[in-house]
């Protein structure tokens, strides 16, 4: 069973994928988000950190045995168990399908929509309208898939569900955005089910109220 | 062993990941790129196609047993064997790490740099200069990793190598771009090794001359 340390800044939705996967699988994960263990912007620019994690990005994982990984999908995969990864070749491929879907269909437009509302980017009406449409399109596909299923792959929670839920975190934090999106209840129910089974991490989403 | 059909337009670098993986693993893959089997822009908008592949994007894979997959990373993974996917949990995670690296560190700036030169998008000097810097940074990390290794993960070709090589296809097609990038020979040697072992697919890269 994996054991190690996850370096990240607090409330990092990418790190949540790994943290939730570890909770489900039982991997022993220490999370370093603050001094002295880790200071984002400083520690990740040191030569020691960069020698293990050349991009200087977080989350970054170092096992107790020295094994190093960057890229959140890889870390979450490593900290998972076979059930989360997909126990058959078909299930494993479907898990990767939805992980890619989250990265390529949800994250870009969701970020383009949410970041201006957080004051991180300048607001651009045309870009925001396009982003909303793109988010709606992605969530419509997701909602349709969940019309007849409880989870994205198979009959139990997988890395697909964890990844997709985490990718929607900021959409849900900005609650009113999803209400405007007129999301059908399948997605909200889906999120509740993915998060409900794991009591240890529910506090990470305590500020989120599904629409 | 997987057997099915890959729907795509011709010369699609995303489809190449799956095609090369299938060649290595021995999966029986038919590739549908032209009428009557598949017409990009028409077939992928039909209700029949969208019922299996709701995003309408390619590459899309349908097994002879009816199993459907979208997202190129998932398809390539499914058509691989255990060696390509990474035979141990650590190797499998490292494969995913480099796949994510290709998607997040190479493809965005490579697209920003190359698309205007192909007439796909309008040229923007500032965006191009930034893209060049980002490509250089990503390839520097890659080159450094390959300084002491033949392949990205372990001692043999994996999905990591296939994905990273395919993600650089446009950069290499626009040969002069890489010359301007002053790529150290590690990457060129790396590409040659990844492609050299698989004679069946070398024709896919016949128009590419590594810098």
């Amino acid at each position: 069973m994996a054991a190690g340390t996850l370096y990240t800044y607090p409330e990092n939705w990418r790190a949540f994928k790994a943290q939730i996967a570890a909770q489900y699988s039982g991997a022993r994960l220490k999370v370093a988000t603050s001094p002295p263990a880790f200071t984002f912007g400083q520690t990740n620019r040191t030569p020691a950190f960069l020698s293990n994690f050349p991009l200087g990005k977080v989350p970054a994982y170092q096992g107790d045995d020295g094994f190093c990984l960057f890229e959140s999908n890889a870390i979450a995969h490593f900290l998972s168990n076979d059930a989360l990864r997909g126990a058959t070749p078909q299930a494993a491929a479907q898990v990767l399908q939805w992980v890619s879907f989250a990265d390529s269909e949800i994250i870009p437009p969701a970020s383009a929509w949410v970041f201006p509302t957080l004051g991180i980017m300048q607001f651009n009406k045309q870009a925001t309208e396009q982003a909303k449409e793109d988010v709606k399109r992605a969530l419509t596909v997701l909602n349709q898939h969940l019309n007849t299923r409880t989870f994205l792959v198979g009959e139990r929670v997988s890395l697909a569900d964890i990844t997709v839920v985490c990718s929607m975190l900021w959409l849900y934090k900005q609650n009113s955005l999803l209400n405007k999106c007129q999301i059908v209840c399948h997605i909200s129910q889906f999120i509740s089910k993915v998060l409900a089974r794991e009591k240890h991490v529910s506090h990470l989403f305590c500020s989120v109220r599904p629409a | 062993m997987a057997a099915g059909t890959l729907y795509t337009y011709p010369e699609n670098w995303r489809a190449f990941k799956a095609q090369i993986a299938a060649q290595y693993s021995g999966a029986r893959l038919k590739v549908a790129t032209s009428p009557p089997a598949f017409t990009f822009g028409q077939t992928n908008r039909t209700p029949a196609f969208l019922s299996n592949f709701p995003l309408g994007k390619v590459p899309a894979y349908q097994g002879d047993d009816g199993f459907c997959l979208f997202e190129s990373n998932a398809i390539a993974h499914f058509l691989s064997n255990d060696a390509l996917r990474g035979a141990t949990p650590q190797a499998a995670a490292q494969v995913l790490q480099w796949v994510s690296f290709a998607d997040s560190e190479i493809i965005p700036p490579a697209s920003a740099w190359v698309f205007p030169t192909l007439g796909i998008m309008q040229f923007n000097k500032q965006a191009t200069e930034q893209a060049k810097e980002d490509v250089k940074r990503a390839l520097t990390v890659l080159n450094q990793h390959l300084n002491t290794r033949t392949f990205l993960v372990g001692e043999r070709v994996s999905l990591a190598d296939i994905t990273v090589v395919c993600s650089m296809l446009w950069l290499y097609k626009q040969n002069s771009l890489l010359n301007k990038c002053q790529i150290v020979c590690h990457i060129s040697q790396f590409i040659s090794k990844v492609l050299a072992r698989e004679k069946h697919v070398s024709h896919l890269f016949c128009s590419v001359r590594p810098a």
Partner: peptide
């Protein structure tokens, strides 16, 4: 969290690039 999020690298324009690529290859394929 917002301050940290501001330092994240996101491909905001991905959809625009996907769309441009799609149109390009649809034209190329008649």
């Amino acid at each position: 969290a917002v301050d940290f999020l501001a330092q994240e690298k996101i491909w905001f324009d991905k959809t625009r690039y996907d769309e441009a690529e799609r149109r390009f290859y649809e034209r190329m394929n008649g």
